[in-house]
Design a protein around this nucleic acid. Structure first.
Lengths: 196, 196
DNA sequence: AGTCTAAACGGACTGCGGTCCGTTTCTATT
DNA sequence: AATAGAAACGGACCGCAGTCCGTTTAGACT
């Protein structure tokens, strides 16, 4: 019997070698990604670079998309921290409206910055509990602070949706719109939703 | 010298056998899709079912996603027709606000209906000129008719974004939200954007 | 009808994502 | 230190998307 009883829903303990390998893989993948681009990343290449069998890769990350998602998670976690405890107006301390504006711009830039990772992560990237549900809760909270009436969760969705990569991609990459204009459009949307 | 001079930007003439094969392929693919689901569709299976070489498939449709996109296009074209010339309130004849509401509901339902096709079509589905730019122009037009001030193209994007499959999927499939509630949320968003 | 060329064809082939299963390695316990 | 069994490992293997290139065919012109 183990000395520490696992708490009911503990995310499952992890063997020491497993943890070590997980790090090796992530490091190798990150390096490969920023020297050849996410599009060129093959699982075999990662396996070789990490000195690990292919099976290990898939057991740990489920799929190529899963691996991309894990990579993405690292960056998103930093962003999340700067929202929760960074300097205002993105972080706490500014008034809700200013925080909302800062949120929109920051989200826009971050999404564009990690575009190819997000694209390659497919479903595992966007919408993986982590960043997505956090951002959602944050917007909901800000809307509450602004005294907005209505179905807050849905209004939050409405504000986030135009900031999703596919939409941004279409506007910026395909239609060649200026990022500033897209941001201004989003700010206008926010103004209307808030009812200022 | 050909009898009919090709007009400058003619979409390219197509040989008779090519056209015949294109139809065969689409028919075979459509049948396979609705008897086994889009997820299970393999290009080899389509090739065999259509009595055509694999190369032909790819020359014609570019990729698996392209084929899915073509399939999707057929349905979307019907929908488009009902917006342009069907009965009100979706079609012309009703006042802009009612048309907008009908548009939202219809779009929501159509997207959910073709969900697996859209998912499998990837970029080729959403955002392929056809349905997307048409819907965009339509919304822009309705907003204009409602006397909305501002950057209409961007406001149109803001109204369409929450109706894109990934967003809907998250809400309906993952979070288990009721479709009616999602629709109500969208209607509320529209109300705020229009400023009623 | 015959010829000639551009276009279409088909299927063998490649590369990569993902699975399977026999082998190795942790770690809790005696 | 020895042991047992659960968990992790690794790489051969499989299926499918997508490419390549030698062959066939449509159809314009003579």
């Amino acid at each position: 019997m183990p000395h520490l009883l696992p708490l009911a829903d503990e995310p499952a303990p992890e063997r020491a070698d497993a943890a070590r390998n997980r790090e090796r893989v992530l490091a190798a993948a990150a390096e490969l990604v920023d020297e050849r681009g996410a599009d060129c990343l093959t699982m075999d290449a990662v396996a070789v670079a990490a000195g690990v069998g292919k099976g290990t890769l898939f057991r740990r990350f489920e799929s190529r998309e899963g691996l991309m998602g894990a990579l993405l998670n690292r960056s998103e976690t930093q962003w999340q921290a700067s929202v929760m405890s960074g300097p205002p107006p993105l972080g706490p301390g500014a008034d809700p409206w200013d925080r909302l504006m800062a949120f929109g711009r920051s989200r826009l830039e971050t999404t564009l910055l990690h575009a190819d990772l997000i694209r390659n992560a497919g479903r595992a990237g966007t919408r993986s509990f982590a960043a997505y549900s956090f951002a959602m809760a944050h917007v909901r909270h800000l809307l509450g602070g602004l005294g907005v009436e209505g179905d807050l969760p849905l209004l939050a969705v409405a504000l986030m949706a135009p900031l999703e990569l596919p939409v941004l991609d279409q506007q910026v990459t395909v239609e060649g719109l200026d990022v500033e204009r897209v941001y201004a459009g989003w700010a206008d949307l926010a103004r209307r939703v808030v009812g200022a």
